[in-house]
Amino acid sequence: MLWLWILIGVLAVVALFAVVGYNRLVRLRNEVDTGWANIDVQLQRRADLIPNLVETVRAYAAHERGVFEQVTRARTALQQAGTPGTAAEANEGLTVAIGRLFAVAEAYPDLKASENFLQLQEDLTDTEDKISAARRYYNTTVMRFNTGVQSFPWLLVASPLGFDAREFFSARGDTAVPQVSFGTDAT
């Protein structure tokens, strides 16, 4: 009789741990999803600013087609990116392209002085700051979630339960500090 009670007790404790641990993983996964949604909103906002920016620059420098195409391609790549890794790559690509666009704009004083252009520039800087803030949060949540998923004993059952390690939002060879694009003063 005593053994039965001990067995029940042990099972109850195990069940309790399982429930608590499972709920923790669910919570961590939700945090990752929220973190990703935050980045996505800002990436979308950045992509939305691009057509307007291209049109504004085109009004002053219509013949700089190469740059416009590069920016538009980079924007499309960003919108089609499916995973955090590719999105981060595409975002970097867009940063480089926008850097080139601003470098072109340097040659047109009227453009640089235009109210619309200044506003767009400010909005872009703001969005970039927000992307990097959202990225810090997202990467922290991913790190917590992955640690949870990869530690014993969840390591054994996490994947069948649908808890797969997530990808960080970072481009290849990326460091914590965003790279400044080639010699342009983008501010």
Binding site: T34, N38, D126, D129, K130, A133, A134
Partner: peptide, 12 residues
């Protein structure tokens, strides 16, 4: 306001 927005985003 922008600074507050940024740190709020970073805080989730």
């Amino acid at each position: 306001r922008r600074l507050v927005e940024n740190v709020s985003i970073a805080a989730g």
